[in-house]
Design a protein around this nucleic acid. Structure first.
Lengths: 118, 118
DNA sequence: CTCGTACCTGACGTTGACGTCAGGGTTGGC
DNA sequence: GCCAACCCTGACGTCAACGTCAGGTACGAG
């Protein structure tokens, strides 16, 4: 599959895919003419990269952890890093939950006030 | 209270406080000599700003919502925006939770493999 | 008055994940 | 062999929330 098709299928931009390759997150073979060629598994890979980015990991961290995330094999250092990142995500979830609660209360107050006004 | 003290107390940088003022998120009076002077309530305000930033809101959004978050009074447009942001946060929490679960499984696998190896 | 510390206003630098543009080569159906 | 659609490699632009530096002013203890 060529880059445009992978982009459309996985919902990321062509530029992003080239960026992933630049960062060694994604590999490709080349046609004799030099165009990128991806196997079908690339779609899952891109999805995984997006998930990790969405979780707030940097490309540097992702490139370190991708091997063990896809293979399940990790060095002790990788395991430490995995735990650090999981805990970071957990802390972030707590922050977001607090913020959500706060906004929720504001919404309730405002709604109550508006209803009272009616 | 002057800017340095507010910075130390609230745990943000002096530069950040000046940035908040530039973005109209935070006000200050001035001494005759032109130095910023903050009331005690500024600390809560800064904390609130940080919470909203941590929740992923932009300074533009924060400046729009700050009035109703601190006063509890909102126009319909502000209420819409509040709901949009709360839902965005909720969606983000879901993403993070999925990512955390994924990393958690990887950690389990790796740990199990290492234990088996011992 | 003087010195040290804190503060002031610009204004340019940083970082990450791409967007975008220029100039040119590749593919493949007809 | 022609043409549209697609792809290539640089390389500069973007955006937010500050960091940092330069050159100068204010405050307050002694």
């Amino acid at each position: 599959m060529r880059i445009g098709q992978l982009a459309r299928r996985s919902g990321v931009s062509v530029r992003a895919l080239r960026y992933y390759e630049e960062q060694r997150l994604l590999e490709s073979t080349r046609t004799p003419g030099g165009q990128r060629d991806y196997p079908d598994e690339a779609m899952e890979r891109v999805q995984l990269i997006q998930d990790l980015f969405a979780a707030g990991l940097s490309s540097r961290t992702v490139v370190e952890l991708l091997p063990c995330v896809s293979t399940g094999v990790a060095t002790p250092a990788m395991l430490d890093q995995l735990i650090i990142e999981r805990d970071r995500i957990a802390a972030r979830i707590q922050d977001l939950t607090r913020a959500k609660t706060k906004l929720g209360r504001v919404i309730e107050n405002v709604t109550a006030a508006n209803v009272a006004q009616d």
